[in-house]
């Protein structure tokens, strides 16, 4: 009995020592993957220019669709609430399928094999939406921007040729921090 109490005591003592020692002095340095991705998607919209024709007017919203990751969609809704990008409000919907793609400006597709296979179908659509995904080869398989988990961090890959084809302009600031896919060697 004494033996167990002492172990518990020692364990908790060390635990509590470190807990009190650390409480809220600075931000946690390890964050949920979906949080980062959601905030990144919000931030990257600042560096994207969609063709005017994709909006019905100056006050039209930027429509974002999230497919295959309900949690990320819910976080993104929180992130973009009351925010403006290029003077426009952002409307996020969380979907299970790929209906009415042309209604969106940005579609996030989580690593769902079925969805990835639909990328071919997506590419053939003649409208200007940006596809963002977290499947490792997303930008190789027909997506425009990949948010790839590389060990413990997120890495960005951009398929610039496809972005151009879709009529979407990506700022050089975003291009600088990304790996560019499909760029022809000089």
């Amino acid at each position: 009995m004494i033996f167990n109490k002492k172990i518990i005591f020692l364990f908790i003592l060390i635990q509590v020592f470190f807990c009190f020692g650390s409480h809220d002095y600075c931000q946690a340095n390890s964050v949920q993957e979906d949080q980062i991705k959601a905030v990144f998607i919000f931030n990257l919209m600042n560096f994207i220019t969609w063709p005017d024709s994709s909006f019905s007017g100056k006050n039209d919203t930027i429509k974002v669709g999230v497919i295959g990751n309900h949690q990320l969609g819910t976080i993104l809704k929180k992130v973009v609430s009351e925010e403006l990008i290029q003077g426009r409000r952002i409307k996020t919907t969380v979907n299970e399928d790929l209906l009415n793609l042309c209604d969106y400006h940005l579609i996030f597709i989580s690593s769902t094999k079925k969805m990835i296979r639909n990328l071919k179908q997506i590419r053939n659509k003649d409208c200007s939406f940006l596809t963002v995904g977290d499947e490792p080869a997303f930008a190789h398989k027909g997506g425009i921007i990949s948010l790839v988990r590389d060990d413990k961090r997120i890495r960005v890959e951009i398929n610039a040729a496809l972005a151009k084809k879709a009529g979407i302009k990506i700022s050089s600031k975003l291009m600088r921090i990304a790996t560019i896919i499909g760029r022809k060697k000089p």
Binding site: S30, E33, D34, I36, V39, Q71, R153, V156, K173, I177
Partner: peptide, 15 residues
């Protein structure tokens, strides 16, 4: 955070 700083953060994926 800037985009660069966001990409420096370590992620966990319990969910």
């Amino acid at each position: 955070l800037s985009l660069e700083k966001l990409l420096e953060i370590e992620v966990t994926s319990v969910s």
